[in-house]
Design a protein around this nucleic acid. Structure first.
Lengths: 350, 350
DNA sequence: CATGAGCGTGAGAGCGCTCTCACAGGCAGT
DNA sequence: ACTGCCTGTGAGAGCGCTCTCACGCTCATG
């Protein structure tokens, strides 16, 4: 009956073959493979031996077909510019996600739509049930994707706090607290005219970091001054422009908190060009603790984010949601850490 | 007959249903979906209408099961540190790969093994036939993966020239030519004592960039001086150390070509600390054109690599190999471009 | 007017797996 | 000794698709 003729291509071993070798039925082998408790120890051993001997690996497609799960998770990155090309946020995040998914035996399918057409194809792909869940990174304020996926019953978790209105689980760093600690550090260093170069207010990270800045001022009893708050777009160039305007509006400025390292780098260049010494005259702190922070002169103090941990957390949340049909949106906020470098060293002597 | 009862979960439409609605057989619908030419135009239209109406999307698992292809490609990134966290090489590469794969209707499965155990699991996963091909990024010199996959009949393409002995298609940038043009530029700027901070010699990129440096010296008839060649490991710190040693060995140095921007940044800091003005006293060029290049003071001239293009190319090669069982290894070398910034501006006046 | 080629279409097997259901055997309780 | 129950195992259906093969039709050909 058995017809062990050499098939075309590399025909991997099947359940059937394992079952035959172990002298049991397909069902039993399946139970062993899937760790069912209702298999007697000796049968389990026989089957395991057969599996090892044949080097059996389950066929994912066949399994998916019947279980209607794909055991794979999509990571969708919709960011045409910005972070993608300025600091290694994504690789680190992906590493965190990847390691968590590997531990949970899930595949990571990466989608990086780079055109509008691509984006709608992405949405179709996701709703077609090819993945068990989706992990969305840095979507625009008006991205319809989360709502669309949720409506289609696809579990979704976001990286970064979504704009209000979006009801979904997310993981974010504590931007507000991070900014607050940075500014508190500047004030503790004896600075009193502390400016901020904020991020875009329509991005959660931008808005939150600005709030943190204000928190710290309020804590220290320093009144807020609109002239000390300038909004940039996280880029180096915008940081430079903002710094120029700050120096014009308040020449007595003695500290700057920039909502990104790149903006801080831009600010440093403008400060140097204007003869201000850092940190002697002006103390500077950035945000992100990107590689840029150590290449500036002086090196930049910065707020470090637990990026890999975010990746782990977001993947964990998503897999939990997939497994448990967990409908309650969860939110996880991770703490940041201030890394002190030369740019915000205390005044040599007051 | 039709039983449009609501099934459990999201039960997507099947071929069967489309066939029924269009009044044809499953086989015909399958032919239409797969673009077979042997379908009469009117039948094709009917079927297409039914597909559109029902929003039919083929079930990938079922298809894979019978075709024995997964239509997905693995991208394996085995880089614990280095490039992963220092510049946005990977996101840009992934973007190139992703866009090419999307156009070719393939899925991108990302694998980032971060432990040794993980690596062997990765190898097992890949050889288990879950993917049609693999794209390997930055493997170590002694990585057994390419050989193992090739032996298992899995098409493989590498990003970056492999160490000799590995027979596989690859895509790389012209490191030698890029370095050569950078050094030629320094010499054209009137520099004569040109040093290099090279990359590790056991990495192709390190070795090739060193060769390019020597090429340019030879072209200009400048004899090579071992004291002017110091090997770093691509990090900022190693660049700083190397610069210190160079200044000691040859205080008359008037130009430095660093094989990475980070090493160049380290060198800049040491030059500044030693009172050397850049570019007036010493001219500096880096490699990679990473974001760091614009945050240093002065901004860093650098050799730019076509990273997205590499991604496209490598994906194209791999899919071609998968489709055509293309057994002849191909190699693609992409040109670089020198980006001139302040750090290598010509001498104000000799 | 029979024959054969060619084309479009349908019937049906089968890819490798999971999972329900039936059932054999052992054991305790009456 | 009979019933009932639990536990471990096997038989078999079926997931949605592709692909081979057979078949019916139309046309050109002898």
């Amino acid at each position: 009956m058995a017809q062990p003729s050499p098939r075309t291509r590399r025909s991997s071993t099947t359940l059937e073959e394992v079952a035959h070798l172990a002298g049991v039925s397909r069902a039993t082998v399946s139970r062993v493979v899937n760790g069912s408790p209702k298999v007697s120890p000796d049968v389990r051993n026989d089957v395991q031996a057969a599996i090892d001997r044949l080097g059996y690996v389950p066929n994912r497609a066949a399994r998916s077909l019947v279980t209607r799960r794909s055991d794979s998770i999509a990571v969708v990155i919709t960011e045409p510019t910005g972070r993608l090309f300025s600091d290694p946020f994504f690789p680190r995040l992906l590493r965190g996600v990847s390691s968590e998914l590997a531990a949970r035996d899930r595949q990571l399918i990466l989608l990086m739509p780079d055109t509008i057409a691509d984006e709608s194809r992405t949405a179709e792909y996701l709703t077609a049930g090819h993945v068990d869940g989706a992990l969305l990174v840095s979507l625009h304020a008006d991205d319809p994707l989360p709502a669309r996926l949720t409506a289609a019953g696809i579990p979704v978790v976001l990286v970064g706090r979504p704009h209000k209105g979006v009801k979904a689980s997310f993981v974010d760093v504590d931007n507000r607290q991070g900014a607050q600690s940075a500014v508190a550090h500047l004030i503790a260093g004896g600075r009193r005219v502390v400016a901020t170069i904020a991020g875009p207010k329509d991005m959660a990270a931008g808005a939150d970091r600005l709030l943190g800045y204000r928190d710290a001022l309020a804590d220290a009893g320093i009144p807020a001054d609109p002239n000390l708050e300038i909004v940039g777009d996280f880029t180096q160039e915008s940081g430079a422009t903002a710094m120029g305007r700050l120096l014009e509006a308040r020449p007595d400025i003695d500290a700057v908190f920039a909502a990104s390292d790149l903006m801080a780098a831009g600010a440093l260049a403008v400060l140097a060009a204007n003869g201000r010494r850092v940190p002697a005259d002006v103390s500077v702190v950035g945000f992100d603790d990107s590689p840029v922070a150590t290449t500036t002169m002086p090196q930049l103090s910065s707020v470090r984010q637990p990026i890999e941990a975010m990746g782990h957390e977001v993947a964990r949340l998503l897999v939990d949601a997939v497994e448990g049909s967990d409908l309650v949106p969860r939110r996880v906020i991770l703490a940041t850490e201030l890394v002190r470098r030369a740019s915000s060293a205390g005044r040599p002597s007051p």
